[in-house]
Nucleic acid binder design. Sequence first.
DNA 1: GCTAACAATGTGAGCGCTCACATCACCTCC
DNA 2: GGAGGTGATGTGAGCGCTCACATTGTTAGC
Lengths: 344, 344
Amino acid sequence: MGSPTAAPTMAHVARRAGVSHQTVSRVLNDADAVRPETRERVLRAISELGYRRNSAARALVTRRSGLIGVIVDELRLYGPASTVSSIAQAAREAGYGMTLDLLWDVTGPSVSAALEHHLSQSVEAIVLVAAHGETPDPAVLRDLDVPLIALDGFLGAGTPTAGVDQRAGGAMATRHLLDLGHRRIGHITGPEDWPQSQARQAGYREAMEQAGVRPGPVVTGDWSPRSGHAGSLQVLDQDPSTTAIFVANDQMAMGALRALAEAGKRVPEDVSVVGFDDIPEASFAQPPLTTIRQDFAALGREAVRLVVGAIEGADELPSTLVPPRLVARASSGRAPHAPRGRRR
Amino acid sequence: MGSPTAAPTMAHVARRAGVSHQTVSRVLNDADAVRPETRERVLRAISELGYRRNSAARALVTRRSGLIGVIVDELRLYGPASTVSSIAQAAREAGYGMTLDLLWDVTGPSVSAALEHHLSQSVEAIVLVAAHGETPDPAVLRDLDVPLIALDGFLGAGTPTAGVDQRAGGAMATRHLLDLGHRRIGHITGPEDWPQSQARQAGYREAMEQAGVRPGPVVTGDWSPRSGHAGSLQVLDQDPSTTAIFVANDQMAMGALRALAEAGKRVPEDVSVVGFDDIPEASFAQPPLTTIRQDFAALGREAVRLVVGAIEGADELPSTLVPPRLVARASSGRAPHAPRGRRR
DNA sequence: GCTAACAATGTGAGCGCTCACATCACCTCC
DNA sequence: GGAGGTGATGTGAGCGCTCACATTGTTAGC
């Protein structure tokens, strides 16, 4: 009876083990109060039948899908990819599955659509790994009946956020250069509409100001090596006395390194370069790149910890900031004609 | 009545619209035979109530989860990240959701566990984006009642595979160097247990043999810039007359470029370098890297096309090979003392 | 003007599970 | 030795949907 491909149900297992469906359920949910002998019998029936619990039926009655939805704007970048990796891992360890959606652009409607797509799959929480872009339709956000956390991003208006302290990182990089005696320090930023970009720049300005040094040329890039290449040339053009450049990510820093080499500038003898991210290539740049490392893995784990907490009852979804770390390599060195005395 | 947070059901919508639940269902599944006026009424009720269809209930009765499971071994690498991106996109366009699992290692049990995890979420198909590693438990594979496709990987024994033609790519790179007059051509491979690594090397040997040239030094790397750095030094050490190196991926090629610069070798004047992958950094290497581009986006789309076909009835899940493409940049040039005549 | 056909909608069952509760056997205790 | 536990198991309802089929109202046809 039944077609050969029909999946076995709890009833089948129950019959075979000579128990009721409820006992099978108890074994599966490892509830107490099942005699070891009975449990054994049920387990045997399960494996003999190749039974697998129907997740839809379970989700229907428990009202829990066991799914965490992740929305990411760009997965080919090292940062988001690392973060998503650790989210996937942490989610699984916490007993959840993870669904993933990509943003085709960073406009509000696109984010809204992705949220909607996840919601229609009954995810229990949503993690948004999108560092920039427009805020989605506030109405969608308000009607959200699942916890949402934005990573490294912004959603304004009370949405909880977890992220690396970008501002501190920017300040850290700049301070490093100041400590090496540099006074003419340029900055290549990321796209203007990225909060990360803004925060790193804020850190740069903050450190400069604290040191009582006038900010150097600041030019805008787009995270690509190409823009770093062009940007470094612009910085040098705007202020030929520049001895150091803080570049807002490593990819642009790689482009900058190349441009400097082409322009006949030695790094770090003539110009020091500090990047941001510590991508794997950074240590193999020519010369190896001094940079700010972000702990994406920790960030992902933290995100899962927070949303799982929110799913399982905590009412508060706090915002967290993970500190970055300076990784000093060969692309930064003492300023050429460093002033004898430190100002300030 | 009912707590304020209780999600509205079809019955609620039906009552509000003054129709039966079935009519609501028809509107949602855009079936025919609903008067435009009625549909309008239902749609209005839906939006007023903020109704959202319960996917679990739907999945329970239709026996379809609308989920495609993806298993990936490493997401921080450009290739897999691109592939997964395009899978996510294509899946959504095809009306599916995508769940993602990461492999914590590449042993059989790990793959089996990931398969099991996806199966327990009732995915309708599985795409494995793992280029290497052990085959999972054959029993698990055999009992699989959903279509499975391995991307760029191997699972031996009849599992359908889609991938870029790695062998052709290896041959393409090598032939490019041969055409430039090089005769002493070394090769840095990926890890030995990666089929991609093997295929690229096979392409290298094939091209060399066809040209009647004796293969140069072949050393093994691990895909990292570090190993490319060390590998290129080994190649030069084993045969100082080497004038070209085919490196099995771009990251290693970047390391090689750096090592060559440190060793006082000019690229491409003294030594030509060809990589594989065409990662974004490749065009900003010093000098810009000649490489083999793989169309990961096409691969991901193809994978979704195939599994969706399999889900929706096609019995055959064919294997496909996507051709790669040579991207010639500045890291490869004519051989230094190229022999006057071509051999063969 | 009565029936056949069709379009539009309603009814009821049941997907496979978990929850709340009922039942039953067995023991303990005074 | 009967009331009252306690541990192990069974029973039935119902989660929110879709499917198959039943029931209407409306039009066409002779």
